[in-house]
């Protein structure tokens, strides 16, 4: 599939054009939860990138071996394996970051970006392309998390990377590092991107790339048919 596309495209598309957070709106939970500091955002982003690249490579290698009917559980187990690996590595080498990411490190397992890329891309493309795709998407995710973290850290605690910024640190707007600030910051950033890119805002959270999309669509179609039946009865 898509063998005509240049390899560099697979790498760069995830960073801006198909950025997983700002454009396809996937992986919202870690985006909102861990970005109280720019440092945490980078750490979480790189951990996810590692898992994404490794799982994409393995899934792409095994794509002919895994039977279609059990592919989702198989993907999840492969992903969970790499998540356990990164947990060990981070606990050993970066214990501080490990503590601040907390439960969200384990929850990389259910990050829909990773399962989505496995389902949409790695299970249909060769190893090199899958690895580049994983790297690009991971870096796009890291960039988004860094941006969120930087905005929230600068406004919310008046620091950047732990260094105080002049007057800002005297009276920081604490609300930005609280949960409400996460939703607010992400909303504003997406609005700004919409304005700059001058693109028509997406009507709702898109299902594209989400592994459950097929089921979801099926169920909404069923519901629609139910509704018409009910309407016909009336």
């Amino acid at each position: 599939m898509n063998d005509k596309r240049p390899l560099s495209y697979e790498l760069t598309k995830g960073i801006i054009k198909e950025n997983p957070v700002f454009v396809t709106l996937l992986g919202m939970c870690p985006t909102l939860a861990v970005t109280t500091l720019a440092k945490n955002g980078i750490g979480m982003g790189l951990a996810t990138t590692f898992v994404l690249v490794c799982s994409n490579i393995v899934i792409s290698l095994l794509k002919r071996v895994i039977p279609d009917s059990v592919r989702l559980p198989s993907f999840i187990v492969i992903i969970a394996g790499f998540v356990t690996l990164i947990e060990f590595l981070m606990k050993g080498y970066l214990p501080e970051l490990y503590d601040s990411l907390g439960i969200f490190l384990s929850l990389i397992t259910v990050n829909c970006i990773i399962l989505g890329r496995a389902e949409v891309f790695a299970s249909k493309n060769n190893v090199l392309r899958s690895a580049l795709d994983g790297l690009g998407m991971g870096l796009g995710f890291t960039l988004a998390l860094f941006l969120m973290g930087a905005v929230r850290e600068i406004i919310g605690s008046g620091c950047f990377w732990g260094i105080k910024i002049g007057d800002l640190s005297a009276k920081p707007m604490l609300i930005f590092i609280m949960p409400a600030g996460g939703f607010f910051t992400l909303g504003i950033i997406i609005a700004v991107i919409n304005k700059i890119a001058n693109r028509k805002p997406p009507a709702e959270i898109s299902c594209e790339g989400c592994p459950s999309a097929a089921l979801c669509k099926k169920s909404t179609a069923e519901k629609a048919s139910c509704n018409t039946e009910e309407a016909a009865k009336i």
Binding site: L25, F184, I188, A191, N194, E204
Partner: peptide, 9 residues
């Protein structure tokens, strides 16, 4: 510019 996702967030 806020229509859709930004307003929801």
């Amino acid at each position: 510019t806020f229509k859709g996702v930004p307003a929801t967030l």
